[in-house]
């Protein structure tokens, strides 16, 4: 890692990672990849998030789905762990609750491949700092 030695450096870094992460419209990643985030705080892991994540990694590889799978922290829906957020290319993120292996398979088959929704969506029930 090269050092960030000024605010200008930091801003440059920010733009570059935003492109890599597909947070920009003109980024290649946002057009092609399915982004999957698995809630992996203590609560999620205790409810089986690690198994869910491993399954998603294997299954997307097996089905040759172009997916980026990462871990994230607690989404706050403890009653519905494990929770998984999926962003299809060019679409808004969708969060699913109670994602065990069976649910994960249904999500891959119905949502990721066919673009249909599946039961168990957790509606976003909060505003972000940019929405307020």
């Amino acid at each position: 890692m090269s050092k960030i030695t000024s605010v200008a450096d930091l801003k440059k870094k920010k733009e570059q990672v935003q492109l890599n992460l597909g947070l920009r419209e003109n980024s290649d990643a946002a057009d092609t990849h399915v982004q999957i985030r698995v809630g992996m705080a203590t609560c999620g892991i205790a409810s089986g998030a690690r198994e869910t994540m491993n399954f998603l990694v294997e299954e997307t590889r097996h089905q040759a789905i172009d997916a980026v799978i990462t871990q994230t922290g607690c989404m706050g829906f403890c009653y519905a762990e494990p929770t998984v957020e999926i962003t299809l290319p060019g679409k808004e993120p969708v969060v699913f609750g109670h994602v065990d292996k069976t649910k994960a398979r249904e999500i891959i088959d119905r949502f990721i491949i066919k673009g249909e929704l599946a039961d168990g969506i957790i509606p976003v029930n909060f505003k972000t700092i940019d929405e307020y």
Binding site: L10, K13, V17, L21, R37, Q71, T72, G73, G76, K127
Partner: peptide, 30 residues
């Protein structure tokens, strides 16, 4: 219907906590 506002939790459940770049992409260290 959104009664919550996430300020302290703004990145929880959005970014990979083990990747500083993701924090920077969301205004981190700005």
């Amino acid at each position: 219907y959104k009664k919550q506002i996430r300020i302290a939790l703004r990145n929880c459940g959005f970014i990979n906590p083990e990747e500083i770049d993701e924090y920077i992409a969301h205004d981190g260290y700005m």
